[in-house]
Design a binder for these strands. Structure first.
Lengths: 156, 156
DNA sequence: TCAATATAGGACTATATTAGTCCGATTAGT
DNA sequence: ACTAATCGGACTAATATAGTCCTATATTGA
């Protein structure tokens, strides 16, 4: 819950990188070098982003990628939709459909509603916001333990 | 992102079940039968819940489980903390603290902020809310939970 | 006290998801 | 034509999650 995949993390970095270079296209290898994400992974992410329209691509020599639209027209939920799909917080499996305890089945609906509200809130946060330094935001100290696996170990 | 694990789903169902029976303790096998979750899995979830204090347990004959506190004193984020841990949305690993591209490193901080806002909102949703039909949920407060400075701006 | 009934803790396996790499094809510029 | 790119997708590896099972311990009541 509330964990974004590493690919989404990379995608965000890549998009921020592109947002700072609105004029020109950047090749996958340039982006990989700048973001310190391994090249094959960078390529994979860029392909997903390009297919969704969040970035536009130019093939061939001197080709590369650029933002598909301006940074404040790209929302956090746009990014999540591309990298993780419009996944529901839970799916009420068919095996529960004949459940006689309807109060339990409604729980799934509650999670869905929560999910929808969160996505809506995320729709108001833009890539331009993400480009701004985090320290400009009201700081609330939050000590969270992070699993080893969530670290960006793949970055070179 | 925004996907709860199946175990969390089970836990919620189990808690809702217990919330409807505040007077007596229910054994794991009773709960398994009522929720249609396999017994070993039910036991696993209950053990986690008991360890966290969300439910209290009584061992031995005539033992079982009951809610550790009233349903409106248990929040959605309490449940998530127990089943999924206080996971961060991303974390910039210490080995990259010397990264020369500060703007990219700050992206993680923005996700953290978003995560915190969501968790805070989830802290306001109680087990009692989850027992009620989904349309009565107080989720609209979510939008206010995101720091103002992160909302869409006209800048750039 | 003994037997029956529970939970407690944790090891273990199986499964699903995610990450990462690589290959061949296509496209565009020089 | 040659070179430098993206495109699509297959494939493997790594990781996380789910689910099961075994042994120990506690409680109750006959």
């Amino acid at each position: 819950m509330l964990k974004i995949s590493r690919l989404t993390d990379y995608a965000t970095m890549i998009l921020v990188h592109l947002a700072t270079r609105p004029e020109r296209v950047s090749s996958a290898s340039d982006i990989a070098e700048s973001t310190h994400v391994a090249l094959p992974t960078t390529q994979k992410v860029l392909k997903l982003l390009a297919r969704s329209g969040l970035v536009v691509s130019a093939r061939g020599s001197e080709g590369g990628y650029a933002l598909g639209r301006s940074a404040n027209a790209i929302s956090a939920s746009d990014i999540l939709d591309v990298l993780e799909g419009p996944i529901a917080i839970t799916e009420c499996s068919a095996t529960h459909s004949h459940c006689e305890l309807e109060s339990l089945c409604q729980v799934g609906g509650a999670w869905q509603k929560i999910n929808k509200a969160i996505r809506a809130a995320l729709g108001d946060i833009t890539l331009a916001d993400l480009c701004r330094p985090a320290r400009e935001l009201p700081v609330q100290s939050l000590l969270q333990k992070v699993p080893r696996s969530m670290h960006r170990s793949e970055r070179s």
